[in-house]
């Protein structure tokens, strides 16, 4: 959709993409963006690497560059610092907008429509699985599952000595804490899945 000179092929744009985003909780205000760039000036990720640019992602989304946006690494590199959210003169709520775009990307990734390279959604899944099972984060299991899924067995083994220190300090529970009314937690997951 964008050639090597960065020129956009308008015939391949999806004009409905912005509506898909604004229908997602957190993405409601995307159409308010007037491209002032205050978000870029506030973004700590852009400060490290100028390829990651919130204004550009928003402009691409508004233009309908669906595939580029959904397969972009940037949406998984938002640190959720809320610096752009705080300063945006149009109240685009960019931090939550990035979350809304990430949710769409995750859905499309599951359906095989886009390729997601980032490991972040895999770790996030390990975390939310814990909530669904116990109602709380069972930190030890989340870390083991999350690290195993993102960094493999070698990655996990590199945490061995840290793991012992943490256990010795009594900072990780060996058993999960579980919510009593788990049916309420399951109800929340179910209700949102049906949407």
């Amino acid at each position: 959709m964008m050639d090597k000179f960065g020129i956009v092929d308008a015939s391949n744009l999806d004009p409905n993409f912005k509506y898909a985003i604004s229908n997602q909780l957190g993405g409601e205000n995307i159409k308010r963006c007037f491209q002032c760039g205050t978000c870029v000036a506030s973004c700590p990720i852009w400060e490290i690497d100028e390829r990651f640019n919130p204004r550009k992602i928003i402009r691409m989304a508004l233009l309908g560059m669906r595939e580029e946006v959904l397969s972009s690494d940037f949406i998984w590199l938002c640190s959720k610092c809320y610096a752009c959210y705080e300063r945006c003169p149009q109240d685009v709520k960019i931090t939550e907008l990035m979350g809304a775009i990430a949710s769409i990307a995750e859905r499309e990734g599951k359906e095989g429509n886009v390729v997601i390279k980032s490991k972040k959604p895999i770790f996030d899944k390990a975390f939310t699985n814990s909530i669904r099972k116990y109602g709380r984060n069972f930190e030890m299991k989340t870390i083991i599952n999350g690290v195993l899924a993102t960094k493999g067995i070698k990655g996990l083994l590199s945490y061995t000595s840290d793991g012992f220190t943490i256990l010795k300090k009594g900072k990780l529970g060996l058993r999960p804490e579980k919510v009593k009314e788990m049916s309420q937690i399951e109800g929340i997951f179910k209700a949102l899945e049906e949407k």
């Binding site: 909780l25 979350g99 809304a100 995750e106 996030d124 975390f127 909530i131 984060n137 919510v179 949102l192």
Partner: peptide, 22 residues
């Protein structure tokens, strides 16, 4: 009593807000 995880930085927005609201 019987509090649950807020969703932290890992859950999606609707899930986080709903878990927190409980």
């Amino acid at each position: 009593e019987d509090w649950n995880c807020c969703g932290a930085l890992e859950a999606s927005n609707p899930l986080t807000l709903s878990l927190s609201a409980r």
